[in-house]
Design a protein around this nucleic acid. Structure first.
Lengths: 154, 154
DNA sequence: TACCTTCATTAGTGACACTAACGTTTGTGC
DNA sequence: GCACAAACGTTAGTGTCACTAATGAAGGTA
């Protein structure tokens, strides 16, 4: 279905879930265009950002932080490790785990991708005023906060 | 990636395209749950709504109205026609085309699905005040209006 | 007539979220 | 100690969905 087409009937035009899907699609396309031009994926950014923010972690922990399935995380980390953005070593304290650590190259890569993504957001939200962008982000944050996978307490 | 997970890093949490993707996912899931429970898909609703609003049309025209690819439209119309929601007959004026017409059963089906979808929107936007729901919808509408496949004039 | 376009249709691709199953390791209840 | 359940990393596979390619039929136009 992708982006909203030319002459959408009003009944369809006003449905929030449809509008969300369309806007999300545009945003995804804008981000992906920029990232693939640099040989990256949004997953890479998500993992790098998660590492930069909360420090080294196991793959399962990274899965929880980023929402990427742990089965898919393997490939993402293979690629990041292959580009020296990340080190993956067995955890001596728990030999089931791998400890994933951000390298200096990974940090630089993160900043590079961050700039691309920020630029994509600018283009995505171009028709909105700064106040509207904030408001939209805030409202979406409320939705994200409310609809959340069932918490499990530590 | 689906819905936003438990402890998302702040850097990721504030990215609009990510928030949009998450919210769109929730909305899609809420809608799809209800529709599949009635043996329907969002495409069915989109086509029925397009027909109800702008009248009988060719398949290609329906594709343009709904954003569904005309290659996928075939199957959607097969199903709708199989449920007597729609009639599909060759256009005598242009024998390349099929004329798709909404049947009374199709109209009833539309109202039924409409109720389900409205209910899904209610659940999706539950944490927002009525004013906020309007504002969100309005802002998303602006985005949809701005990012649009290249127009072709009639 | 010749050529380009539109239409409906079939088949197929690629991306992506998600599941299933495995061997290994760790923690828990008895 | 020992059985059992759970968490980990990994591989393989599934289902959905947007999207492309190609085809035969029909129409518009020069």
């Amino acid at each position: 279905m992708s982006a909203t087409p030319e002459h959408t009937p009003a009944r369809l035009r006003a449905i929030p879930s449809r509008l969300l899907a369309g806007a999300a699609n545009v945003g995804d396309r804008l981000v992906s265009e920029r990232l693939t031009a640099q040989g990256a994926h949004k997953w890479h950014f998500a993992v790098l950002a998660a590492l930069a923010e909360a420090g080294a972690a196991s793959q399962a922990e990274l899965s929880r932080r980023t929402g990427i399935y742990r089965s898919d995380m393997v490939a993402v980390l293979n690629e990041l490790a292959g580009a020296d953005c990340v080190r993956r070593e067995p955890d001596p304290a728990d030999r089931r785990r791998n400890v994933i650590t951000l390298t200096p190259a990974g940090h630089r890569r993160l900043e590079q991708l961050d700039a691309l993504i920020t630029d994509a957001q600018r283009e995505l939200l171009a028709p909105l005023t700064p106040g509207q962008r904030e408001e939209l982000t805030r409202l979406l944050g409320v939705l994200a906060e409310h609809h959340r996978p069932p918490h499990q307490a530590p």
